[in-house]
Write a protein that binds this DNA or RNA. Structure first.
Length: 800
RNA sequence: GGGCCCGUGGUCUAGCGGUUAUGACGUCGCCUUUACACGGCGAAUGUCCUCGGUUCGAAUCCGGGCGGGCCCACCA
């Protein structure tokens, strides 16, 4: 090759310039746009929309890269990939984000105004986030971007509400609800979190005439709400007490002593008070024994008038005061410090309460069997993630509470008739009952009370398939596209997002929303701990992108199996960086020689047939691996082949032929090089989209590698005999290299001869590739000896 | 308390019934060979958490421990 040809390929690879160049180009060319009219098979992805209030963190970089591997592979299979983008900009986090940014209060303007403000003021943040995600080199169709706060999403969410209402799935009921006193709203079971807290266990005497019964409680502030005392039916100590009445200290109400198996004789004194409501069991007792309702808390977590002189005190202070008064009155018999697990609201870490309020629910408890069945129809990758889904469903105890006592959010499309109390449903969407006029009630009245509550954000984000697929009545597009092919997400939100989407999908369309779910793990810190702001162990992916490159970050993301958590260590990015450099250098070398070459049939040498044989095996394996979402195996196998088979051995073997311009076997080498190099680039393209695009562009034509076809294994290129010869040759070359190394010779040192000890059969095979052996070892001749095991010795040219 | 996952050289990871136990990072030695020293060749480093069992044979299958993670339940 001439100097000119070589000079066209820069010696240094500049990942930052190249990556930005291609990211811009892909977007400009709309390379990843879904083709709506096409008859090609569709592969659709229910992309997780990131929340606009946060930043891109390492976990995102990790899991979005993994999703993208699959998207790019599917695209190269020739499928019409539907890979929309979205932002979750609805909900409390956004509300706070916008309030802070614009220095406003949501409650001081209409929802519509605030929504408009959200739409405009998150725009900038979303542009920046989009750039962050784009800089990973992912391939969604950014033209199809939805925002969960926009009119379309609000209308979709409201439509879902109306449809489920029509199905009789939704009900509004005054019932004990999980309540956060800090956020002053009902919350759902899924929003709870465990927290270990210090508390004290108090033995408190209740009077039975002149006798006393001693109960143990951690929550003496609930004494005014006490409606009964429970003991276990078999508890000999209290047998005679059952049926009697006791008097609650300080508050004086008389409550019955009842027997129930849910009272644990081992716990505390074995005697427990039931308050409406201290915990889940209280609720069960209340229902089962038809106990009265006594509520002593207000919605913001203070004592109400039922608490008498304690009214108005926040719960914690009331507890203190009541304990003091119990002590003073002699009713407090003992106190022990304990630490126990309590349920807190995951957003604000406040201990939750059970309060009776009027809320909207979607009935799901009767769907458990159907939901379990649906979960089995879904292909889970990795498979065991289904257990988490099933475990969650089996343990479900509440219908899905979808109302939130927040001001901002998707409004319920509902009014209540002041005349007949009936529910009035909106006819046009989107709607805000607070500002829009209600249609006339069925009873004829036009006097309507708007519903002030908003929908749980999950009620909207559970509709991502409907949102992305533009769900509307009689919609051919939606019907054609639903269910989708893939739900990619991380394992922590199986019980939230995946479960809720499943519920909505089944209820609206009677079908599982996707055929496959791919569940990613988390990126952990170097010690295997979750990254979090409070721990101070967060590593910014953008910083790593600046320091390394998107390709090396993606290479890292492909280093462990799908679903596994991976500790992040900066040094692990070095591997990707080195690999990219190696690929660049090998490509420079190969492209030099391929200048002006176009693929043509030729008689192939044994060594070339060996390489092509090995390549077919790799193609087959990689295809299989990608079908099973095992991108880590694709990475490992391709790396192994590229580096150790192709670079370390094959490229060294062909150098002789390549530099000898007139060799008739040069054409064979060029055929093998061209075929193999292109196939390798293609198989690496899903993992390393930038470097492969760059090299493809430089050496293999103008079209993007990402819309080129995935390599196909060709049976015609399989050649067992050549494979045996190649493997044997590699072993001999290895032996010769080792021998040179032992003599402290350079690998390029000329040799007088290589002596091979082998069987007569092996000798015959080696003689068929002897020229290659001489080329790569730089020996003048080969001599053979009979031997049981392969032995390689060398004689240096200078006779050393 | 229940479920699920995981435990492989200093670090990360592959393998999941027969391999001299994979590869990378790191360490050490040799080698400046015309793609690459961000390289090549080689070396050292492993009771494959532990104890039992099944098997001709187990890192791999089964059971009991121990350790880590996640989810759920309990949380008077």
């Amino acid at each position: 090759m001439t100097q000119d040809a070589r000079s066209e390929l820069p010696g240094q690879y500049d990942p930052h310039a190249v990556e930005r160049k291609w990211q811009d180009s892909w977007e400009r060319e709309k390379l990843y746009a879904f083709e709506e009219g096409s008859s090609r098979e569709v592969f659709s992805i229910d992309t997780p929309p990131p929340t606009v209030s946060g930043k891109m963190h390492m976990g995102h970089a990790f899991s979005y890269s993994q999703q993208d591997f699959i998207a790019r592979y599917q695209r190269m299979l020739g499928k019409n990939v539907f890979y929309p983008w979205g932002f979750d900009d609805n909900g409390l986090a956004t509300e706070r984000f916008v309030e802070k940014k614009c220095k406003v209060r949501a409650t001081q303007m209409s929802r519509k105004e605030f929504q408009q403000l959200c739409l405009t003021s998150t725009k900038e943040a979303e542009e920046e986030l989009k750039r962050s995600w784009q800089s990973l080199g992912i391939s969604p169709d950014f033209e199809r971007t939805y925002r969960t706060v926009d009119d379309w999403c609000i209308a979709t969410s409201q439509r879902s509400f109306l449809e489920l209402y029509a199905q009789g799935r939704e009900y509004r009921k005054e019932a004990p609800t999980i309540w956060c006193p800090e956020c002053r709203t009902a919350i759902a079971q899924v929003e709870l979190e465990d927290r270990e807290l210090e508390s004290s266990f108090n033995d408190i005497a209740f009077a039975i005439g002149k006798e006393k019964a001693v109960i143990a409680t951690t929550r003496p502030e609930l004494l005014p709400a006490c409606v009964a005392v429970f003991v276990h039916p078999d508890d000999q100590r209290y047998r005679t007490l059952v049926g009697k009445t006791v008097q609650v200290p300080l508050f004086g109400q008389k409550v019955p002593i009842l027997a129930d198996v849910r009272a644990d004789p081992q716990k505390g004194t074995g005697m427990v008070m039931c308050c409406t409501f201290g915990d889940q069991t209280d609720m069960e007792w209340w229902k089962a024994h038809s106990l009265p309702l006594r509520i002593c808390l207000t919605l913001d977590g203070k004592m109400n008038t039922l608490a008498g002189k304690y009214a108005g005190l926040p719960l914690k202070e009331a507890r203190k005061a009541i304990i003091e008064d119990l002590r003073a009155s002699g009713a407090l018999l003992a106190q022990r410090s304990i630490s126990h697990m309590v349920n807190v609201h995951e957003r604000c870490s406040t201990e939750i309460e059970f309060l009776v309020t009027k809320q909207w629910f979607i009935r799901v408890l009767d769907l458990k069997d159907e939901l379990l069945k649906a979960g089995r129809e879904l292909v889970w990758r990795p498979e065991h993630m289904r257990h988490r889904y099933e475990n969650w469903i089996t343990g479900l105890q509440w219908d899905w509470c979808i109302s939130r006592q927040r001001y901002f959010g998707v409004p319920f499309p509902v009014w209540y008739c002041r005349k007949c109390q009936g529910v009035i449903l909106a006819k046009e969407l989107p709607v805000d009952p607070l500002t829009d006029k209600a249609p006339a009630c069925a009873c004829g009245s036009t006097d309507a009370e708007p519903e002030r509550d908003v929908l749980d954000t999950w009620a909207t984000s559970s509709l991502t398939p409907q949102i992305a697929l533009q769900w509307r009545e009689d919609d051919a597009f939606f019907n054609k596209m639903y269910p989708m092919s893939l739900r990619p997400q991380a394992h922590d939100i199986i019980t939230f997002w995946l479960f809720n989407t499943m519920v909505k999908g089944l209820l609206h369309s009677g079908k599982v929303p996707w055929s496959h779910a791919m569940i990613s793990g988390w990126a952990l810190d170097q010690h295997g701990k979750k990254m979090s702001k409070s721990r101070g162990n967060v590593i910014e992916p953008l910083e790593m992108l600046r320091k390394f490159s998107a390709d090396s970050l993606r290479y890292w993301a492909a280093s462990s199996k799908l679903g596994e958590d991976l500790p992040f260590q900066e040094k692990e990015l070095v591997a990707g960086k080195k690999f990219v450099t190696k690929l660049w250098n090998a490509s420079r070398f190969v492209l030099q020689h391929l200048q002006g070459y176009s693929l043509r049939e030729t008689k192939l040498t044994t060594v070339d047939r060996w390489l092509l044989h090995r390549l077919q095996g790799l193609i087959e394996q990689n295809t299989k691996s990608f079908e099973l979402f095992e991108y880590s195996r694709v990475r490992a196998d391709t790396e192994q082949f590229f580096w150790h088979v192709y670079c370390d051995n094959y490229l060294e073997l062909v150098k002789g032929r390549l530099y000898a311009d007139t060799s008739p076997e040069r054409d064979s080498a060029l055929f093998a090089l061209s075929t193999t190099h292109l196939a390798l680039l293609k198989m690496l393209a899903p993992l390393l989209p930038h470097i492969t695009e760059e090299v493809h562009h430089l050496g293999f034509g103008k079209g993007s590698i990402h819309v080129s076809s995935w390599p196909k294994a060709e049976g015609g290129l399989l050649d067992e005999e050549a494979n045996r010869a190649g493997e044997l040759l590699i072993a001999v070359v290895g032996g010769a290299r080792k021998a040179k190394n032992e003599k402290a010779l350079s690998l390029g040192a000329e040799l007088d001869s290589v002596t091979v000890g082998c069987s007569p059969e092996e000798r015959a095979v080696l003689q068929s590739v002897e020229k290659d052996l001489l080329d790569v070892t730089r020996a003048k001749r080969v001599t053979y000896q009979d031997a049981k095991e392969l032995i390689v010795a060398i004689t240096p040219a200078d006779g050393k």
